[in-house]
Design a protein around this nucleic acid. Sequence first.
DNA 1: GGAAGATACATCGTCATCGAGGTATTGAAA
DNA 2: TTTCAATACCTCGATGACGATGTATCTTCC
Lengths: 174, 174
Amino acid sequence: MLELAILGFLYDAPLHGYELRKRIAALTGHVRPVAESTLYPAIKRLEKAGLLARTTEPGAVAAPRHVLTLTEEGRTELLHRLAEPAQRDITDENRWFTVLAFLRHLPDPAAQAAVLRRRLAFLQEPASFFYDGDRPLAAEELDDPFRQGILTIARATSRAELTWLRATLDSLGG
Amino acid sequence: MLELAILGFLYDAPLHGYELRKRIAALTGHVRPVAESTLYPAIKRLEKAGLLARTTEPGAVAAPRHVLTLTEEGRTELLHRLAEPAQRDITDENRWFTVLAFLRHLPDPAAQAAVLRRRLAFLQEPASFFYDGDRPLAAEELDDPFRQGILTIARATSRAELTWLRATLDSLGG
DNA sequence: GGAAGATACATCGTCATCGAGGTATTGAAA
DNA sequence: TTTCAATACCTCGATGACGATGTATCTTCC
């Protein structure tokens, strides 16, 4: 997830670590903050893997900056991660939103649509958080108001997303 | 999160690990599967911390079962984790849903309401995923249809949850 | 003059999670 | 009859994330 965000931001323009940190904080920070001690090692990993290159520039204000640029392999890797996300990136909303945030980088609308269809398929599966045997329970069937809340919220999300998915799939050209 | 779910399920009744696994899979598995190699060490951790005790019973079908029971410290710990969740448990929907799933275990409606109010406060903060400087951007201000989607979905979720939160806070007795 | 906060990057130890693999039994399907 | 799926638990190595802490500079405010 973090790695996808790093690659995604760098696809547009080279950035230094600190700026990257601010962008990632803006994107997902209010939900899931990213510690510096997570970001810098992640950058090193990607650099070591040859996905990004580093050049040192004098700092605008303080310490020198390490400006990060995607390599050709980095661009390829980003496109691959966007075109074929792990199932987890499809089902987990946090991860899914990160995929969505950078999906525009995929050059082919058909490839974008394919990713959206995977999410569509996931949302169309009959699934709940609570079951009576194998049967998924609806909010109305629960006593617990908090568990009712979970289902109410999840259903609202699901509806909004299905509407958006279908409209977007349409406009991507069927 | 996983630990909260384990404690939460065991609060109702003693269970063996395999059954626990199935319940956790039902609760959050469609979004975030939990590997066995994560669950069993987590059980051991909690046992080592004195939060749960284990007794061996002959297996109904195959291998012997290790039936897990919450200790008194385990019950106290669960109630503490529910009454005072980390900020992360409030902001991250996955974690928040787990808190909600077991919030009924808190004996005091006022304590339940206090937790809901923390979520309410979080949702009322002006936050987006995308900014123009410091100003949060609305879906309509974005070109990217995928980023529009993120905001559209997040807004629908937020609205549904705010409605539910206010109604539930009311019914918990103001 | 000094403290605080932003800029800018880094390391360290710890811990949670994961995938791969292992052990053993029972019942059903091929 | 062999194989598969389910039951039931476990270990191991790798990795990724985290909090704490450190280093250094510059600006702003008191």
